[in-house]
């Protein structure tokens, strides 16, 4: 059964507008995108994404950031009529084909925010997109990738760790469709470590591509990559969103002025987006103490410390109900 569902385009299975953690992630990203203004005001940026039929990210970034140069890449060409019909704004251009084919055909002379929000796992296909974006995006551009990073489970009944590790590494190599980096061990593919592993492979790919690209650059012009987003969340599967910004070596002061790290979800370690399921009454009570209230000294209303912590760090972004954006 689950395999049958995987064969359907995901937009036919899930309504991405109402997945709480995804919804929160999107708004966190928008909040961070505002801060690129040291490089250029965000409304002059181009946005490239996978809009699917709901174009949820496009609607948010157009409405809240006034980005008007937008490209949605769509591989499900057989639903072309439906995508065209659902395109919410005229400023969104549809590009049909898979991202491996479409991205190399685009011009890259403008600052671009590219968010490749895949449904599937990290593969060579994804890494090729990452490598191309790193080879072509100009300074001030953001590269963001979302992949399924659900950890592997040991085969049932197998207790020999060497055998389990061998099984994991083989499975991972089949998943990636390329050689597994030598530093990856079996434990790196289990539980939450899978997200760390995928993140490192993505960042390594960006760095390798930049190394080639910088071969003849003068010291000041050398392009560097600053990771910003290290989100993990589980709406259903465990997802990882990894990404950051490209800048020239002599622009590090501009990058500092953007103050991305003033946003507490921008951190070097993985950041868990986990919106607790709480009642409106609980929400109002917590809101009254926020943003700076002494949450640790709250009277006991039956919520766990984790629930309170997760709420307090995401309340500005979390939907206050299953939000349907009628755009």
């Amino acid at each position: 059964m689950s395999q049958d569902i995987e064969k359907l385009p995901s937009f036919k299975v899930f309504d991405y507008r109402i997945r709480t953690n995804k919804n929160t992630e999107r708004k966190m990203l928008a909040d961070a995108f505002r801060r690129v203004s040291g490089f250029e005001s965000v409304e002059k940026y181009r946005y490239i994404g996978f809009g699917s039929v709901t174009f949820t990210d496009f609607v948010l970034f157009h409405k809240s950031l006034n980005i008007t140069d937008m490209i949605s890449i769509e591989s499900k060409e057989e639903y072309e009529t439906r995508f065209d019909f659902n395109k919410p704004y005229d400023c969104i251009k549809m590009k049909y084909g898979n991202s491996n084919d479409v991205l190399p055909e685009l011009g890259w002379n403008q600052k671009t925010i590219t968010w490749l929000d895949y449904d599937g796992r990290l593969t060579d296909f994804v890494l090729q997109d990452v490598a191309l974006l790193s080879a072509k995006s100009i300074s001030g551009s953001l590269i963001i990738v979302t992949v399924n990073a659900q950890g592997y489970q040991s085969p049932k009944g197998e207790k020999s760790y060497p055998k389990i590790e061998k099984f994991f590494l083989k499975k991972f190599s089949e998943q990636l469709v390329r050689e597994v980096p030598t530093w990856v061990k079996g434990v790196d593919l289990q539980g939450d470590e899978m997200a760390n592993t995928c993140r490192r492979i993505i960042y390594d790919e960006i760095k390798a591509s930049l190394r080639d690209r910088n071969g003849m650059a003068a010291a000041d012009d050398v392009l560097e990559f600053e990771p910003l987003f290290n989100f993990v969340y589980s709406d259903n599967a465990r997802m990882l969103t990894a990404g950051g910004i490209l800048y020239k070596h002599n622009e590090s002061s501009i990058l500092r002025k953007c103050e991305f790290d003033a946003l507490d979800f921008i951190q070097k370690d993985l950041y868990e987006i986990k919106i607790p399921v709480i009642t409106p009454r609980e929400r109002h009570f917590l809101n009254q103490q926020l943003p700076k209230g002494a949450l640790n000294k709250l009277k006991d209303i039956g919520l766990t410390d984790d629930e309170i912590k997760n709420y307090s760090r995401s309340y500005r972004y979390s939907p206050s109900y299953a939000e349907i954006e009628l755009s």
Binding site: R213, G215, M216
Partner: peptide
């Protein structure tokens, strides 16, 4: 292995792709 050629080759590959398409 020259850094200059690695940059040039990366650019050649991206450019030839559109012709191949």
């Amino acid at each position: 292995d020259s850094p200059v050629y690695r940059t040039v080759l990366q650019q050649m590959i991206v450019m030839m792709r559109t012709v191949i398409d």
